[in-house]
Simulated scan of single mutants.
Amino acid sequence: MIPLLQPLFRGDWSAYAETLVCAPAPADAIPVSALIGQPPLLQDVLAKQARYRRAHGTDLRAVASAWAMDYLWALLPGVVAAASVLQHRFAMAPDTLAVQFNAIGLPTAFYLRDEGKALPGSDTMARYGELLHGHLLPLFAALTAQSRVPRKILWGSAARYIEGILDQAQAQLGRLPGLLADRDLLLEQPTWPGGERNPMHARRRCVAQPDQAAPLALHRQCCLYYLLPGEDYCGACPLAPQFRPAALTAAPGG
C-alpha cells in the first residue's frame, strides 16, 4: 500500500488499498495504455474471464461488465479516498501506470510511477479529471468496442463505487465540505464544468421496502450480472422483476 493511504485504510480496510503500489512494475504487468490501445491484450483478459465465469458464445457484454466492476473496485477506493479526503491526486493517465492480472484475468495490482501530488483547495476536476477523462473514458470505449457493452453501464458501475466510497468516507469523517462538493459534481450534476455531459449522472428510482421505513434507491444502471451463468439480479437492480413498474403497481398497496 502507498504510505499516504495507510491512515485511511487500517485493519480490515487495508485490503481495499493494497492494490495501489508505488514501485517499478514487474515484467508481467501491462501498461494501461497498452491494455487500451492493443486489442489482443484486452481480448485475452476478457477471454480468461469468460472461461472462469463459464460464459459461452460471442455475447461478452455481461463478462465485460463484470470484469470492469472488478477493475474499478481494485482501482477506485484508494484513488477516490486520496482525491476527496486528502485532496491528493494520483497520476491516472494510461501511460503512467501498469496493471497486473491473475490467471483469470482480474487485476491484482496497479503500479504507479510516483506518489502523485497534493492539491489542497483544488476543485474536483483538478483531482479527478485525469482519472475520468484520461483513464476511464478510453478504457470504457475499448471495452465497448470489444464486447458491445453499453458505456452507460460501465459509467453506472463507476458511479456506484464512487458513491459507496464517498458515503463511507462521510460516515467516518462527517459531512466535510470537500466530500460534499465532490459528490455533488461527480454524481448529482447532469453536466460537468464546460457543459460536458456527466456520464455518471442518471435518475434513480426509489422503491418501498417491506417492513422498512426508508425506501430502497435502485442502481442507476443494471450491470447485466444476471446474464452470467448461475447468477441472478442483485438486491438493487433496476431490472429485477420485483422492481419493475408493473410489478410495483400490482403489489398490495402499490
Results as ranks from 00 to 15, higher is better:
residue 38 Q to K: 01
residue 75 L to D: 06
residue 114 D to V: 08
residue 87 Q to W: 00
residue 135 H to W: 12
residue 158 A to W: 01
residue 54 R to D: 15
residue 98 A to Y: 04
residue 73 W to E: 12
residue 46 L to M: 08
residue 153 I to S: 00
residue 50 A to W: 10
residue 136 L to H: 09
residue 44 D to F: 02
residue 93 A to Y: 11
residue 107 P to K: 00
residue 133 H to P: 00
residue 75 L to Y: 09
residue 18 E to T: 15
residue 147 S to D: 01
residue 123 D to M: 03
residue 159 A to Y: 13
residue 96 T to F: 08
residue 70 D to G: 12
residue 100 Q to M: 11
residue 54 R to Q: 15
residue 108 T to W: 02
residue 120 P to L: 11
residue 129 G to T: 03
residue 52 Y to F: 15
residue 30 I to K: 10
residue 109 A to S: 10
residue 99 V to D: 11
residue 140 F to E: 13
residue 64 A to F: 12
residue 130 E to H: 14
residue 72 L to Y: 05
residue 85 V to R: 02
residue 136 L to Y: 02
residue 155 W to E: 05
residue 69 M to G: 08
residue 113 R to K: 11
residue 118 A to L: 12
residue 75 L to T: 09
residue 143 L to F: 00
residue 107 P to V: 04
residue 110 F to H: 06
residue 92 M to C: 14
residue 145 A to R: 00
residue 25 A to N: 02
residue 122 S to H: 09
residue 155 W to I: 08
residue 115 E to P: 01
residue 97 L to M: 14
residue 146 Q to P: 00
residue 39 P to N: 04
residue 20 L to C: 10
residue 115 E to A: 06
residue 39 P to F: 05
residue 39 P to I: 09
residue 109 A to T: 08
residue 85 V to N: 00
residue 42 L to R: 00
residue 138 P to C: 01
residue 25 A to M: 05
residue 136 L to N: 06
residue 25 A to I: 12
residue 101 F to N: 12
residue 39 P to Q: 12
residue 107 P to Q: 02
residue 68 A to F: 14
residue 41 L to K: 07
residue 148 R to F: 00
residue 138 P to M: 05
residue 96 T to I: 10
residue 72 L to W: 07
residue 118 A to C: 09
residue 107 P to T: 05
residue 136 L to G: 04
residue 116 G to N: 07
residue 118 A to Y: 12
residue 51 R to Y: 14
residue 142 A to H: 06
residue 42 L to V: 11
residue 105 G to L: 13
residue 114 D to L: 03
residue 73 W to G: 08
residue 100 Q to S: 10
residue 96 T to L: 04
residue 54 R to C: 15
residue 30 I to T: 09
